Computed example of a mutant assay.
Amino acid sequence: MCGRFIITDSAPDLAAMFDIEHEAGELPEPSWNVKPTDQIPIVLESMKSDPAVRRLEQARWSLVPTFSPELTAAFATFNARAETVGEKPTFRTALAKTRAIVPVTGYYEWHTEGTTKTPFFVHSDDGLPLALAGLYSWWRNPTLGPDDPARWVLTATILTTGAQGALAGIHDRMPVVLPEECWDSWLDPHTEGDQALVDAVVEASIEAAAGLAFYQVAPVTGDAPELLEPLGPEREVGYTA
């Protein structure tokens, strides 16, 4: 799974990395402890124009489908399982047309043994942000009038798959890390999103996952750069094809 991450890369750096054409006027501040329902930056391509415009936007981390009567879901939606995302009503519509990239500087994962949970920080071995496969959805608040700017809420989720290489020894799940050659097709709203597309990017992500590294950190509390101080040696993920 992916339940906490950090994003410290600046908006201009993300805009350059992802060839952003429109940058939202308000984006989240850097954070070393992003939690579900926090505001996060996402990359998407708007369907309102042809050709589509690539945008850097702010979204609530926990996808809420358009049909939901409330912003708070009955179950967790900050992650979506890649194996079944095409079957789930919560995510199926977003998969079809509104796919996103969630850029992260790295993410936390916990190894559980008995009642002890040990946190690790996972990041790229070259220091660049990770491009995680995501979905987004615009949720309309039915209690607000049509002219209220808060009526529409942009929400997002991160896809997860089976853990690769040494990461499988920490947790059985990990986010889907998109290689650069998949960015355009994943974001293109004119490409019909289905389970076959997800399966293809998951397969492509295996090699991208091999470029990850991780190390143990202290309990993840608060929000400061000190959370990334290592408590153990850095290890490379590696992978098996």
Rank of each mutant, 00 (worst) to 15 (best):
D38F: 04
I40S: 12
K35P: 05
M17V: 12
P30S: 02
L27C: 14
P36C: 15
Q39E: 13
D38A: 12
T37F: 04
H22W: 02
D9W: 00
L14M: 02
D13A: 15
P36V: 13
L14I: 08
E21Y: 05
I42P: 08
E26I: 11
I40Y: 01
A15N: 10
H22L: 09
E29R: 10
L44V: 12
P12Q: 02
P12D: 02
F18T: 15
L27K: 03
P12I: 04
K35Q: 12
A24F: 01
A24D: 14
V43P: 06
G25L: 12
E21H: 06
P12K: 02
L27W: 05
E21Q: 15
P30V: 11
D19C: 13
I42T: 10
T37I: 04
N33T: 14
E23W: 01
A24W: 01
H22Y: 06
E29T: 15
E21D: 15
D38I: 10
D13T: 14
D19N: 15
S31P: 07
A24I: 03
A11E: 00
L14Q: 04
I40V: 15
S31I: 07
V34E: 10
S10N: 10
V43E: 08
N33Y: 07
S31F: 01
A16C: 09
E23D: 08
D19Q: 12
P12G: 05
D38H: 11
V34K: 01
P30E: 09
T8F: 04
A16S: 09
E21M: 09
K35R: 15
T8Y: 06
V43Y: 00
D13E: 13
E26L: 08
E26T: 10
P36S: 12
D13M: 12
I40E: 11
P36I: 14
V43C: 04
V34G: 05
T37K: 05
K35F: 11
H22M: 10
I40L: 13
S10Q: 08
N33G: 05
M17N: 11
A15R: 06
L27A: 11
P28A: 01
I20D: 00
V34I: 15
N33S: 12
P12V: 02
P41F: 01
T37W: 00
P12N: 11
S31G: 14
E21L: 11
G25Y: 05
I20F: 00
A15K: 03
S10G: 14
I20S: 02
A11P: 07
G25N: 09
H22A: 14
E29P: 05
